[in-house]
Amino acid sequence: MEGLRLENKKKKLIDDKGKRLDGRKWDELRPISLQVGLMKNADGSAYIEWGKNKIMAAVYGPKEVHPKHQVLPNRALLRCRYHMAPFSVDERKNPAPSRREIEISKVIREALVPAVIVEDYPRTAIEVWVEVLQSDGGSRVAGITAASLALADAGINMRDLVVGCSCGIIDDHVVADLDDTEDKEGSGDMPVAIMPNLGQVSLLQVDGIFTRDQFKKAFELAIEKGKQVYAMQREALTSKFFGGEPMSTEVEEVAE
């Protein structure tokens, strides 16, 4: 009874015309902007705004490993920290890393490592710092998207970029890219990161109930939307290094 009443009181997240609270269609992404190389000291950096998320990712390395006992003889040690600024959320967050941040740091690292050719940098450390200045739904996938650009900006050898998108369930519908409210009020969230050229998944988390069909639909949508974000990633990287000229298909012939 108690549960039912709560269910009724919940606000509707999708209206009769299929519009979400912020006016988006079920499969529509929030606005995304990406910039590469804003930070002066870091070897590589990228800034992403995705919905209300504002996240800076920076990379240092390859560099010497401290403490020495952590050295890996045949590959680089990838360090990753996902951290939220105390002012990034509604209620002030304690600056010390929470269990949530520690777990997210780990899964971000494990989403990025498959793309990095760690064997090319034995005995070194590569550091990835992800700082959430303002947090909204999907901050981990936004962080991964920025971090992979920061790695490419630093010139670390990579098999592919890594790009994320999260899908979920609100009012029993599969939708793309949950914002804060949908994440809290919805019944399921599925952050996914992919390596788009390799067609592999490097992050998968699920939080909430999905039927087999919903799972398939949400998972495939996350991949499709991830590819859409990948196009923006390409553009941001190209615009830094080639001045925004179209590049992917452009072939220029030079007489030798």
């Binding site: 209300k52 600024a85 105390p86 002012f87 990034s88 959320v89 209620e91 002030r92 303002q134």
Partner: peptide, 24 residues
């Protein structure tokens, strides 16, 4: 930072600081 009660980014040469105010 819209989620903060007040915020500022200061760039002094290449030094950059972001401050955010939270009220409780």
């Amino acid at each position: 930072i819209q989620k903060a009660n007040g915020s500022a980014r200061v760039t002094l040469g290449n030094t950059q600081v972001i401050a955010g105010v939270k009220i409780a």
